[in-house]
Design a protein around this nucleic acid. Sequence first.
DNA 1: CTGAAAGCGCTAACAC
DNA 2: GTGTTAGCGCTTTCAG
Lengths: 378, 378
Amino acid sequence: MRKKRTTLKDIAEAAGLHVSTVSRALDPNMRQFISDEVVNRVVAIARQMDYRPNRMAHGLRTNRSMTTGIVLPDISNVIFPPIVRGVESVLEPRGYASLIVNTDNSERRKERLVDMLLARGVDGVIHAAASLDDRAALELEKHGVPLVTVNRSVENSSIPYVVNDEADGIEQLMAHVHGLGHRVIAHIAGPQGTSTGYHRLLAFGESSERRGDLGWRNRVAYAGAFTHEEGRRCMSELIARDLPVTAVIAANDTLALGAIEALRAHDLSCPGDVSVTGFNDMPFLELIPPALTTVRIEQFAAGAAAAEMLLKLMADEPADTGVVLPVRLVARASTAAPPDQARSAGEEPQPVAAEPADAGERAPAQRRSRRGSSSSRA
Amino acid sequence: MRKKRTTLKDIAEAAGLHVSTVSRALDPNMRQFISDEVVNRVVAIARQMDYRPNRMAHGLRTNRSMTTGIVLPDISNVIFPPIVRGVESVLEPRGYASLIVNTDNSERRKERLVDMLLARGVDGVIHAAASLDDRAALELEKHGVPLVTVNRSVENSSIPYVVNDEADGIEQLMAHVHGLGHRVIAHIAGPQGTSTGYHRLLAFGESSERRGDLGWRNRVAYAGAFTHEEGRRCMSELIARDLPVTAVIAANDTLALGAIEALRAHDLSCPGDVSVTGFNDMPFLELIPPALTTVRIEQFAAGAAAAEMLLKLMADEPADTGVVLPVRLVARASTAAPPDQARSAGEEPQPVAAEPADAGERAPAQRRSRRGSSSSRA
DNA sequence: CTGAAAGCGCTAACAC
DNA sequence: GTGTTAGCGCTTTCAG
């Protein structure tokens, strides 16, 4: 059985004052209207009685719970915890606590969870699991709950967002592999219901066309989720299409890891036969061979920026409609010059590492290669 | 500005009933006292008006917030998210939401955060960041807030816990390396203020002595935290002691990874010169060469078990005083037979792989070896 | 400067 | 079965 908490009333009785006076004495903004003597006495008694304001009562009265919601696809996914820490780095010092929920990419679940957050009267929500047409987000908007999406955005809405520069990230990757000599480049696209999957694909297409590659559509495989398994499946699919692909831009690191696994299963090496790139720069990535070339996104900073925006919204101050954070290429070992030569089929000559073209079509599966090296016992 | 929520009063007016009647009609446990006709009407109106019970008001009245706290060292540490998911897998279906806080291993911070949880009236707390003498946990106990520690335990207290079988895990690792022929085994001990660090060291000592090794104390390096850097530092320290160590039992995976890095920096190979083991079996570990031999703990199950206990405590039902979950050895590539021969100095002959002893003392740094293989570009 | 009174939205005796 | 009343702990007019 729990001990009864001390309330303002208890303090009031102990101090021989009215509760409202005690309330004022304990409220930094109201202290000015109370004599110093009383303030000191009340504060002393409060401390001594181990008083802790009841936030539920406070919230009921003021309609502010000092609690926010953080909606994630899955906290187990390594890219989200840093976002959460970023959010809390700004919210916690301001007195907010966070209810964290995981949608597991289920829209139904998402709506249930948002309902739950609403029921608890959250003052605002950070949404890292948004889909392009996010019903739950619109529901929050409808109820006037301040909302910022982070990492992903909601299309055709005025919902403020903090996202990464997907287009620039893809462009940097494309420039990198192009510079290495690759001319036939494939894409493992992420779920098209998410802004990340969608915009990265878009950027891949635009970047391809900018380089004179109009046939890129044939070289896209669509992942249903940002998972290892889907990466594997998509890579197998690409291999089965028997195109002369020498580089694969995966929509994120997890897909890339799966893709490399599939290559290995087909006796192809990365980067010997096929170069592969990721997106996000997950922790520990540099330790997994071949160390993945990827694009680094600043998750902590994104979370912090989103929280700053949310603070403004919660205070009814004007806030940005959106922030796009810069990203940067991290070139590692999973990309290298294509096997044999760089091919070119009508493009302008490239400045970097572009050897004279080799006209013949070449299936990607033609050369035997070393397998992954990590699991043999010494 | 937020739209006003519909309240019981709104429904009461719309239905021409009293709020208390509406309250009963909406409460599954009170429905029985209300006529079906009214129940149906109320439910219909509630749905139509998008009614959502105000949990703050409910909590204020009933003294139950339907919210629990989860205290972690750091959600960014990959072993904790699965625990959280395990907890929520049982709590969420029962209507609880969770406030997650990160202590960053600071006792001061921990107390502040527990204060914050108390202020929000959490119905119970899952504590995964307990220290052996945890003031914050005792504070919670004092206030009568149901509490279960998970992963770690609090010494000399009656606080219920869910932990892993540290002793058995260490024993399995010791049996494994001993079986491979290792006789001079070191330990990188975790922080001695945590039950994991403390009990693993204890188990290392007992297991050593059971095998006739009484000199193990000289082969222990103490890490101040479960970090990569500390693992590196401790391994360097062990190397500097110039003992004929051929195997190192690190208190967890992160320390082990740091240790392997230090070996590499000293031109020693793992497992060629020194075998290294971890504890926890973090995700992706099998992909990082040399794949670490470790002990797998069931984090999700631990979280779920802790939550089950918490549910009982919150319902004032009798609960276990503690649960010890079994662990299991995962042998991978970071352990192998010692270089040259297995040494033995007075122990009984070992059944597995124990070659005749080599009498000479041998410094661990004597043989040059291959370096880590992950970062070369093709 | 301090006190009195009302009420946030809900539940739980207690009436009828 | 349903209405009445009181009150959880707090803030916030309104008086004085």
